[in-house]
């Protein structure tokens, strides 16, 4: 598995993603610069977390127009696996590769803590074999409140495109387990074809024993299996 991690000005989780794929999984991971036009033949593209362009205008709005995003869109259209984490999720919605938008957390606070996620819906490259699992993964965001109009939301729910929901440790989904006010308690969604996934929580921050939690590794291992090792 070859993994391209896109660095935008202000990305700060790109090295973490490269480390998980390269050091923990022992596969090939490399960074590509947002202003370039070459993804270098990846099996998987990750748009990492961070504060690209200082979150100016709207989170991800300026990065969505970066030169490399045309290549990411082509790759996604051909069925390529794309994962957007946190700011990467915001960039995917701003670029129109995923529906909806992420706006200011309902409580107005920047939230940085562990949450629990219930995996469900489509078997995407990042969630295949994980349906029904509850995973503990940290969030760190100010704008993770998922919004979409009622029709879009109904389509996402009906087609299994909601792949991650905030839940309690026992898997129960309710408002008390939702940190940011997201509609439908949504933490992650997939494109209709399932190959593009965006999630607010950070699996790369809990993917090795040194970090005290390895739940996040499950998403990377699913990708490894789905994409042929």
């Amino acid at each position: 598995m070859r993994v391209a991690v896109v660095s935008f000005p202000g990305s700060n989780c790109d090295d973490d993603c490269v480390r998980v794929v390269g050091e923990v999984l022992g596969r090939t991971a490399y960074k590509v610069w947002h202003a370039d036009h070459d993804l270098q033949g990846p099996d998987l593209v990750i748009l990492p977390g961070g504060f690209s362009y200082g979150d100016y205008l709207r989170c991800g709005a300026i990065s969505a127009h970066a030169p490399i995003m045309a290549d990411v869109a082509d790759f996604a259209r051909r069925g390529g696996a794309v994962l957007g984490i946190c700011n990467g999720f915001q960039i995917l919605t701003e670029a129109g590769l995923l529906p909806g938008a992420l706006h200011r957390n309902a409580g107005l606070h920047f939230i940085c803590r562990d949450v629990h996620l219930r995996v469900e819906g489509l078997a995407t490259p990042f969630t295949a074999g994980l349906a029904g699992r509850v995973l503990k993964v940290p969030v760190a965001h100010h704008d993770g409140n998922y919004h979409a109009d009622a029709d879009t939301l109904a389509r996402l729910e009906g087609d299994g495109q909601v792949v991650l929901r905030y839940c309690h440790p026992d898997g129960v989904v309710d408002a008390a387990a939702n940190p940011n006010g997201s509609l439908g308690h949504i933490a992650g969604i997939a494109s209709a074809a399932g190959n593009v996934v965006g999630m607010m929580p950070h699996p790369e921050r809990c993917a090795e024993p040194l970090l005290g939690n390895t739940d996040g590794l499950a998403f990377f291992q699913a990708a490894l299996q789905t994409l042929g090792g």
């Binding site: 300026i62 701003e94 529906p99 909806g100 938008a101 706006h103």
Partner: peptide, 8 residues
């Protein structure tokens, strides 16, 4: 193209 997000 940039200044407004039609979703919201």
């Amino acid at each position: 193209g940039l200044l407004a997000n039609p979703v919201m």
